[in-house]
């Protein structure tokens, strides 16, 4: 590596450090916020699809991630995919909306769905931050999604939420103390069933365990939400409608 390249290389992100800690060995490359590659754990190859530095998911980034998923399906049928989620949500910009970013985000989740159907186990791990559509298109498009202890998951920051809902900030803050459906935070997203749990300590052990689990046929997140008391109605309402009552 020459000196210029060393100077221009971005500092190593927490996402890259996390990947290093998860695998026996990982070969990754970074292009802007996108981190991709392959990791090995107990001799098993795992595709890595990650973002760094709280990326904003623009149409171009969503497309690049979808490309990566399609390539894994073609080149390594059945290989598990680990998604390290770290984003500030979708990019808010005129050009992205002109292009139809919702279509790109949907394409990305569609690719992940197909990968799951074709036998790729898809695991999500929220590193620093996951926001709204950025959580929906990635973290929620997995077989199971986990989070690091320091991570944050949210729909919107509380002060912005207060402006939009016209509920005073101190009232919202107070309600957040008791209501898991309202405020930001990994603990709340665990309680509503959107996250399986937190990974801490021996990260490889967590990954090993997640990979070993058999993928379920059904979407069980409503059941988790009910068991954990964070989303007590969704399961039964959905079941009732499905039964046509």
């Amino acid at each position: 590596m020459n000196a210029d390249a060393a100077l221009s290389a971005p500092p190593v992100s927490s996402t890259e450090r996390l990947i290093d800690a998860l695998f026996d060995q990982a070969s990754i490359s970074r292009a802007g916020p996108l981190v991709t590659g392959t990791g090995t754990l107990d001799g098993q190859a795992i595709a890595i699809l990650a973002t760094a530095e709280r990326a904003q998911i623009g149409a171009d980034l969503a497309l690049a991630m979808a490309r990566n998923v399609l390539d894994v399906m073609r080149e390594a049928p059945g290989r598990p995919i680990l998604i390290v989620v770290d984003n500030s949500g979708h990019r808010l910009g005129r050009w992205d909306e002109l292009m139809g970013n919702n279509g790109y985000l949907a394409h990305l989740s569609t690719c992940l769905y197909l990968a799951r159907r074709r036998g790729h186990r898809v695991i999500g791990l929220v590193n620093e931050l996951a926001v709204s559509a950025g959580f929906m298109a990635l973290g929620m498009a997995t077989d199971a999604c986990y989070a690091m202890p320091e991570a944050e998951v949210r729909v919107m920051a509380l002060n912005a939420m207060s402006r939009v809902t016209k509920v005073p900030l101190d009232r919202l803050t107070e309600l957040c103390a008791t209501s898991p459906v309202l405020g930001p935070g990994v603990a709340n997203f665990i309680r509503v069933g959107a996250l399986r749990g937190i990974w801490s300590g021996d990260l490889s052990a967590h990954l090993r365990e997640a990979l070993a689990e058999m993928p379920g046929e059904r979407d069980t997140r409503r059941e988790l939400g009910l068991e954990r008391g964070g989303r007590t109605l969704a399961r039964d309402i959905a079941a009732q409608v499905r039964a046509g009552v």
């Binding site: 949907a106 949210r154 898991p180 459906v181 309202l182 997203f189 509503v192 979407d219 964070g230």
Partner: peptide, 22 residues
Amino acid sequence: VRLHEANAGLIAVGEIQRAVFD
């Protein structure tokens, strides 16, 4: 997503999307 129950709304849109794919 309905911000008054933001987290439940966000997971709900994810579940709707999954159901659409299924």
